[in-house]
Design a binder for these strands. Structure first.
Lengths: 339, 339
DNA sequence: CTGAATTGCGAAAACGATTGCGCATCACAA
DNA sequence: TTGTGATGCGCAATCGTTTTCGCAATTCAG
């Protein structure tokens, strides 16, 4: 069905090796004459030859494919990053195999295994959890890897991170500046580097203002919408409810909105809201959302650049650690309690 | 570095063939004794053997990979669909290669070529354009294909579609029912089946109400946010501006919102808005958005099911055409002009 | 005890490409 | 005529699996 080198070889009368060399641009290196070169190229065109990438990959150990391992591609932040990565890698001649982990470490391990057995040339991963055993093994395997968005302690790898701590502190300090003293935080998956740094930012912001944090106001356990909904319901029913909620992720925010509007409350009059992750629609929400914007475009581009560099240097490159700053986009979802 | 069948063979003393058979579950079929089977399995475990999928694919002509060709994965609708597809295929043992076409047909052609040279076992595609030459060729190639969301005339293929026409008609008729007579439509990429059916719905809705459509109110040319912005700017500056805008896609809607709020207008008091594509945040927009919801969960699941069936039947299956109904979620972005 | 049937496994040929090595052929100088 | 380089290309191994055939060894019936 599909046309192979052999077909071209038999049609032209040359050997498979010669055809291969011509088609790979090794013409003058192997001193193939113009005449045969043109002839082979012509037939290749006619037959619409496409090299079988499997065979090629088997031989060369290069697949021109990379894996992208992310928690959930339907999350706008990840979707945007994926997009940037896909385009960047495609321009460099690579295709993208996308894997969702659903924040499940077992799934993540499986996916990595699978990618490796597929022989990908590199992996960009947003790992889940703090336990990094399988990631360390991956790094040791000498296959180029970039950790994106999330990281681990004591790890030597290409890292593209966002300063979650500072971003979080800015967000919470903004609330504090506006007179809020009971600020709830709905966290995402605990033991994920992003989450934990965001929580730390929240706590340290309070300390900087000499305000004790109420442990009851630190709630939540994962990045799903339902988590935001449930925890908000809980918070709103507290005897002494918070005046503001700080959401650590866009999906959580959606759940928070579900709960708030179900109770017919309004933002920011009844409750203030700040969110990590700035979605496209944030400016146009009922109450334009004050949110921490992550530079996903840059993150994706840098991750691509690092990975490509690593692939080219075949492991000889010293690893880079790049940390980007998020910015707080102030809109109207926070009430000023000072006046 | 990586462990192969040969390694296991030499460690156990058996031949490569026997090892292969055991590890592929062909143990009793080929009458391999319990003892050797267990021994081989044990060593395979110890060495953490993972079959090289390239080699396997080369031999079996199956890669356990499928391609997903979509316009833009950062678009929420496509992102959701991708997610569903990814999960479904992964459960069936397939990985997903994601390709963005950016609504560019040349890119689409390239991507398909690439996927084929990678030997994917199937393709799910949301094609761009009305010219289907390369798609027809793809279908003839006997590789299982599902066309998702978009289609072509006179084509015999697995189709999972949404009734864009009816969805669009419902949306526009809702506006008409509310007394709107000057309704603008901002279209997406012309000559795309989804877009053209939406426009047709718009026109027919007018005819059903015996209202002539003003050609000046049919604007737009692609699915990008900028398109929504520019066209809205134009519409708002018309001598006789529309009382409502009907957006044919979520990204366009975003641009529309950009323009409307830049001009400090309010929805629905100054201008009504209805959108095709119901994003997660639609209920929480400044004016909760009345929108046509596409059943992306179903679409993804059905596409997966059809593709798997097609793969299993190896082309013997008669093609299915499945059309799903969108629903109009009525919220508050439309003003009633009747009273 | 012999021949047939069964059991258990190995050799080797694919799959389609890349690549190190080396073999012809030809021109030209000696 | 012969030796020497250059020129132009083919042979065959290799990547890691799967799979067709077939062969030895064992078992079993007669």
């Amino acid at each position: 069905m599909t046309v192979t080198l052999k077909d071209i070889a038999s049609r032209t009368g040359f050997s498979v090796s010669t055809v291969s060399r011509v088609l790979n641009g090794g013409a003058e290196m192997y001193r193939i004459s113009q005449k045969t070169r043109l002839q082979i190229e012509k037939v290749a065109q006619e037959l619409k030859y496409r090299p079988n990438q499997l065979a090629r990959g088997l031989r060369t150990k290069k697949t021109q494919a990379i894996g992208l391992v992310i928690p959930d591609i339907s999350n706008p932040f990840f979707a945007h990053v994926s997009r940037v990565v896909q385009v960047g890698m495609y321009e460099a001649g690579y295709i993208l195999i996308v894997c969702n982990t659903d924040e499940n470490q077992d799934t993540e391990i499986e996916q990595i295994q699978l990618l490796r057995s597929k022989g990908v040339d590199g992996i960009i991963i947003m790992p889940v959890g703090l336990e990094s055993h399988h990631i360390k093994e991956l790094l040791n395997s000498k296959i180029p890897v970039v950790l994106l968005d999330r990281s681990f302690k004591d790890i030597s790898a290409n890292l593209v991170l966002v300063d979650n701590y500072t971003g979080s502190r800015k967000a919470v300090e903004y609330l504090l500046k506006n007179g809020h003293r009971r600020i709830a935080i709905i966290q995402g998956l605990t033991n994920t580097s992003t989450n934990d740094m965001r929580v730390k930012g929240y706590i340290d912001a309070h300390q900087a203002y000499h305000i004790e944090v109420d442990e009851n106001l630190i709630v939540g356990k994962d990045y799903r919408r339902e988590n935001g909904y449930i925890e908000t319901k809980y918070l709103l029913n507290l005897n002494n409810p918070p005046t503001a909620i700080y959401s650590t992720s866009d999906m959580i925010t959606l759940g928070i909105l579900d709960a708030i509007f179900e109770d017919k409350l309004s933002i920011p009059d009844d409750i203030s809201l700040v969110s990590f992750d700035d979605v496209d629609y944030a400016p146009y929400l009922i109450s334009p959302l004050t949110a921490v914007h992550q530079p996903w475009q840059l993150m994706g581009e840098i991750a691509v650049k690092l990975l490509l560099k690593d692939i080219k240097s075949s492991g000889q490159m010293e690893k880079s650690r790049i940390e980007l700053k998020p910015v707080l986009n102030i809109r109207k979802s926070v009430k000023n309690l000072n006046t």
